[in-house]
Simulated assay, not measured.
Amino acid sequence: MKIAFYGSSLLSSYWNGAATYYRGILRDLAGRGYQITFYEPDAFDRQQHRDIDPPEWARSVVYPATEEAMRGVLAEAGEADIVVKANGVGVFDRELLEGVIDQARPDALRIFWDVDAAATLDEMRADASHPVLKALPNLDMVLTYGGGPPVIDAYRGFGAADCVPVYNALDPSTHHPVDPDPRFACDLAFLGNRLPDREARVEEFFLKPAALLAERQFLIGGNGWETKGMPGNVRHRGHVYTTEHNAFNCTPLAVLNVARDSMANIGFSPATRVFEAAGAAACLITDAWEGIDLFLKPDEEVLVARDGQDVADHLASLTPERAKAIGEAALARVMAEHTYRLRGAQVDQVFKAHFARAREAA
């Protein structure tokens, strides 16, 4: 089967945290026989900060961020059996969503794949003319990368025919333990772009512990933090390419995960970074959110913090031996239950079930 996938970027993680999620799932689907074309706009300097070359397992189409070029790639949607519009492309999101519905064949599976479901649902609650809300009657299903029962119920309440969470996971071929790198040496590291709905939580869970533990060393990676005032024991690394993520996770005593406001509020939404860190056998400290125990066991496979004081307390009592034990336990858990091979199998079954139902109806 052919998949036409319209998303932010497959080739670059620059201001695009969904890149590794797309790669993990689509690479596995390609191994199952799907022919994938990924359409991404040349926008936000992503093409100047590529992490990978166009892969063998997908046809990569990078188009100029113009309306004419966008219309051109939409014209190819009619060749696919499965047409996917992901949220957060950043340019022409409304037009792309409307276009994949209009251009897809009548027998094609039409999907909206939401990698920021909590935020999208908040927008729909506030705007009766939201493009996703208007598109739901013409979509066969919504896939999300998190959210659990609250997101499923909310999307179905808005009229989605079906909503299936497909969680982030680990690709062990790209994220795995490596030797420490002195560039990332510190006691606690955090990796994430500076975003309005994340910044206050970073202040609480990262900068506050840094201020409380002046004798410890902290490292922050990601875009946008250059102008942020920080304690003197915090170093800013800037953009960290995905090829550097393993060393970034393996080197510190511990790494921190901080959910965005919307994800933390709705729960059941582990970030890609959670599985990347666990895959590198890092000792992970995460802010508290509902559903964490479905993915990693608190105190044994992950350390959970309710606030910045908890982060500081965890770090103050953490020994290298305990950090190593937690990281190794997390790696074993995600290898057994949370790989993209398993997520790909899930998506494959979702697709096959849809077409089986369509054949029966016909």
Rank of each mutant, 00 (worst) to 15 (best):
V304I: 12
W225F: 09
E95R: 10
C283Q: 01
G31N: 11
V240S: 03
Y21A: 00
H175C: 11
L303R: 03
E321K: 14
A358C: 12
G291W: 04
G146R: 04
F190K: 01
A210H: 09
A316D: 10
L188A: 04
G148W: 00
D313K: 13
A288W: 10
V100K: 04
L29E: 03
R260Y: 07
P270K: 04
A119M: 06
G308L: 05
A271P: 04
T243V: 13
E290C: 12
T174N: 07
D310G: 08
L303K: 03
Y14M: 10
G279E: 08
E276I: 04
A43H: 13
A211K: 12
W289I: 06
N193Y: 04
L139H: 04
F268I: 06
A69K: 02
E215A: 14
D307A: 08
L74C: 07
V132Q: 06
A154M: 05
Q349N: 13
A358Q: 14
A345Q: 15
P149R: 15
A119C: 03
C186N: 08
A361Q: 14
I3M: 14
F275W: 06
F355V: 07
R125I: 07
G7D: 05
L318E: 06
L143K: 05
R194W: 05
L331E: 05
R201S: 13
L170A: 04
N168Q: 13
A214W: 05
V151W: 08
F295L: 08
V142K: 02
F184V: 08
G279Q: 10
P252D: 12
G232A: 12
F5W: 14
N87F: 07
L139R: 03
R125A: 14
E67F: 13
V202W: 02
A282S: 15
T37H: 01
R105L: 10
E199A: 07
A330Q: 03
E244G: 07
I82G: 02
H130Q: 11
A77D: 06
V311C: 00
R357T: 11
P64R: 13
S9F: 06
V83H: 01
V234Y: 02
D45M: 10
D179H: 14
A277Y: 01
A69N: 02
R237C: 03
D313A: 14
R341Q: 14
Q103F: 11
V62Y: 01
P231Y: 04
A189G: 15
I101W: 01
F190S: 00
W113S: 03
H314I: 10
D114P: 03
Q103R: 15
D310I: 05
P270C: 06
A312C: 05
C163V: 11
R333A: 12
T37N: 00
F206H: 04
A271Y: 03
A30V: 02
P106N: 07
P231G: 04
L284V: 00
I101C: 01
H338L: 08
A353W: 10
E301H: 06
F44M: 06
V62W: 00
G327A: 02
F295Y: 15
R183W: 08
A211L: 10
P149V: 12
S13E: 04
F248Y: 15
P252Q: 12
D181F: 07
G99A: 13
Q346N: 09
E76D: 15
M335D: 07
R71L: 15
A356L: 15
K228S: 10
D114V: 03
R125N: 11
M263L: 10
P137I: 09
T227A: 14
K324N: 13
R198Y: 02
F205L: 08
L294P: 07
D162A: 15
T339C: 11
